[in-house]
Design a protein around this nucleic acid. Sequence first.
RNA 1: GCCGACGUAGCUCAGGGGUAGAGCGUUUCCUUGGUAAGGAAGAGGUCACGGGUUCAAUUCCCGUCGUUGGCUCCA
Length: 651
Amino acid sequence: MINITLPDGSIKQYARGTTPMAVARDISEGLARNVISATFNGKTVETVTPLAEDGKLVLYTWQNPEGKKAFWHSSSHVVAQALEELYPGIKLTIGPAIENGFYYDVDFGEHHISDKDFPAIEKKALEIARGKHEFKMREVSKARALEFYQEAGNEYKLELIENLEDGEITFCDHDTFTDLCRGGHIPNTGFIKAIKILSVAGAYWRGDENKPQLTRVYGISFPKQKDLTAHLELLEEAKKRDHRKLGKELELFTFSQKVGQGLPLWLPKGAALRERLEQFLKKAQKKAGYEMVVSPHIGQKELYVTSGHYAKYGADSFQPIHTPKEDEEFLLKPMNCPHHCEIYNARPFSYRELPKRYAEFGTVYRYEQSGELHGLTRVRGFTQDDAHIFCTPGQLDQEFMDVIDLSLYVLGSLGFEDFSTQVSVRDPEQPEKYIGSPDIWEKAEQAIINAAEAKKLNYTVVEGEAAFYGPKLDFMVKDALGRQWQLGTIQVDYNLPERFELTYKGNDNELHRPVMIHRAPFGSMERFVALLLEHTGGNFPLWLIPDQAILLPVSEKHEKYAEKVLNSLENHEIRALIDQRNETVGKKIREAEMQKIPFMLIVGEEEEQQGTISVRRHGGEDLGKLSVQQFVDLVEKEISSTLKSFKEEKV
RNA sequence: GCCGACGUAGCUCAGGGGUAGAGCGUUUCCUUGGUAAGGAAGAGGUCACGGGUUCAAUUCCCGUCGUUGGCUCCA
């Protein structure tokens, strides 16, 4: 007999060789029907794997992420079988589960597939799934495994097997299909009731652009047809919220082929919105002791050689700008920090004067590869809400925590409640990727973790994600559809002060190196606006939205009155406009709704008589007739409830 | 940059070897209206660009540019 510990802590005895499925059946018939995956002592096992020792067993259903993983991984086997049957001679490589679904990387050889082929693949895969074929794992010797794929002529699988130890190689069979596989499957293919092939894309073998390019087939599957329908609806919703679509509809920004790809043009409404975001942050930064600085868009190449950016990004950035003078070269600035270092260098500082906090909405240029460009989230010219804090090593912890406060204030004011943070540290395996000595890195990493602890942030540490000049803390925001975005960033930097020979005089009358903090709570204005658009679906917070109210005169007779109301709204700094078109009220309302304007103010005979406005909220709620003053109060109250000032005194 | 898809009116899209269509928008006229589309008429297109095949190309083929889904990278 063996002792099986379940997640609730209970221990049950079973005959040696029992299976997770048998345990599930012992607990309840219902669980047995739903269990699709299990871990034993932390290791993924099949639901039919015999358990030979005491241990902890966790059973998973579709409701658990682990269950979904097994489900999607199993689905990739089924799709792979379908592909092999439809396109004989293709070479399969790897087919893992991903966050939402799975993919299979395939060398299609002579075959070409496009989205027109998806329905046939889905049909074939579903046919296979309906056969309720069991997934059966078996151990295979390395020699046998190599032989199998040599016969199949699949050099990719051979490469995978070469890197595995004899004795740990397993194959998985279902129906007529066999694949090299580590394991973690659902009991049989019959659980898969809905399969959707989502897209195909190129992907290099092992992510290396020097290796052959494979075709990656993305798909997703579900245990119920209605789950697939719901998922497709979510994708539709994401499409509706796409910032590129909304940006066009709401006239915020555009792109021009003539100007160049990846170079956004901000339209008046978008520019004004950006301006409000900047003012909002400037106000908070002023309170937090920042000083604004301004630096030009280009700098001598030498500047970036000193900073190390040239060595790191030179090849991938805009090529140097030459002047009439021989050998003189300038670069479009890829970052603001070198300029700010030189601003710091403008005069000597005493430790009594630190920290210095230099802020600038600095526009930077990076030559992103054309395939990387995406709406406003990945562009070639963008404005960072950048600042660099120069402080003594002793001030670092406090400064870092203050920046966290500022970032939290920014997120709170814009309605992001669901976020986490990530501490990015070195990859210990690749020290050559980073500049600066290991002990300096060690100190910087520790400072960040200390601050995150002190601020009780929900954080995870990720190795290898640090910038080349220092570790960082990133804010990861979940938007309304649950998608993760990387936003503001705070980075510690001991390297640039060294490179630019920054100093301050300490109380010992000696020169010391300051520490630098790079930080950008928005990240970049472009990306932040994109995220806000997708998060809010275009329904920005009232303080930020381009048009807060629109006056809708019932007929031309009431335009004069509408203008009068508009005037007094403007005196109260409410952004409003009048729809003066010769259209019916119904039509004006419909279009104001589609423009997502928060308040529709209907003015007609009655309102003019009473000196009121009829207020309709976006979405249809009727707030009745209000005086202009009552409406102004309403707007002001709503704004002040979301937009508190930074470090507001409690009264 | 690489692989796939796409590029038709200001916008969203249909069409297809014989030089083009819808809805919305826009213009003009009628209508002066009460909480998500009042009516009529008109204007608007070198079918992304360049080449090839063809009697004939917007349609088929090739290339370029751009957009897009990924790969690598990053704010």
